[in-house]
Amino acid sequence: MKTTMGHTVSVHAASHGNGKGTAAHIGKVVKNRYVLYFVSIVSLLVIWHFSAVIGESSKYMPTPAMVLTELWRIAHENLAGKNLLGHLWSSMHRVLIGFAIGSLVGVPLGLFMALNRYLNALVKPIFDLFKPMPPISWISLAILWFGIGEESKVFIIAIGAFVPALINSYNGIRLVDPALYDAIRMLGANRWQTMIEVTFPAGFPALFAGLQIALSVAWSCVLAAELVSARSGMGFLIILGMTMSNPAMILSGMVVIAITAYLITVVLSNVEKWVCPWKVELPQ
């Protein structure tokens, strides 16, 4: 499911080394990737800027500079009692609790379902019943049950994290290469040793991938829950920007949200390299 785009520079260059196609006559400089990136970013900013200053459009579209200024402002001023970092922390706090609950329930349940077919036969149908419902669709029930406080948001996040945590740990264990079981049994392992030495380590990368997905789903869920009802958090911040008709505030909130999501991905993929050093990179 996870695809990466950042590792193909040399392959691409090679496949175009002796090409004589469309782009060849434009010249080597233009074909340099970094020149193109630079051109792209500069022209994006210029187009953005001018589209924002023409006529009435600044009411809807702030210039890049305005977004930066707004970012600086909300980083220092308090909105609803908290500055930017405070709101970011509110969201992260909810994510961490919800993620912890969701994965602490989802991972063991997925493992047990993979190891015991009776448990699987009992739990899987009910899980499949609930799986197609987007986690956010629980928000109304959550508010009825827990009120508009922290609990309802944590509940949504926990549900969002629970699903991928369960699915991946379940599949991770079930899809272990059966030949590995042959190998460990030939070395004399009993059931328990087989589980410790093969089942868990072999299933671990999938399980970890599930946690990665769970965390990014959790980050989406917290925003959605905060958009529906909250008095703090990044979702609250951008919906506040909407009600205050302040597009710069919406956009600067989105910038912070995007950076956070990006950092979560980067940190987790580094953690993955550290905890699963044997995991082979996908070819190409």
């Binding site: 990014s216 989406s220 958009l227 979702g235 919406i250 991905t265």
Partner: peptide
């Protein structure tokens, strides 16, 4: 730039526009 933005984060901007 738009890739890491969680889909729901577009909602306020879209409604505003």
């Amino acid at each position: 730039m738009i890739r890491p933005i969680p889909p729901v984060a577009w909602i306020p901007l879209a409604i505003f526009w």
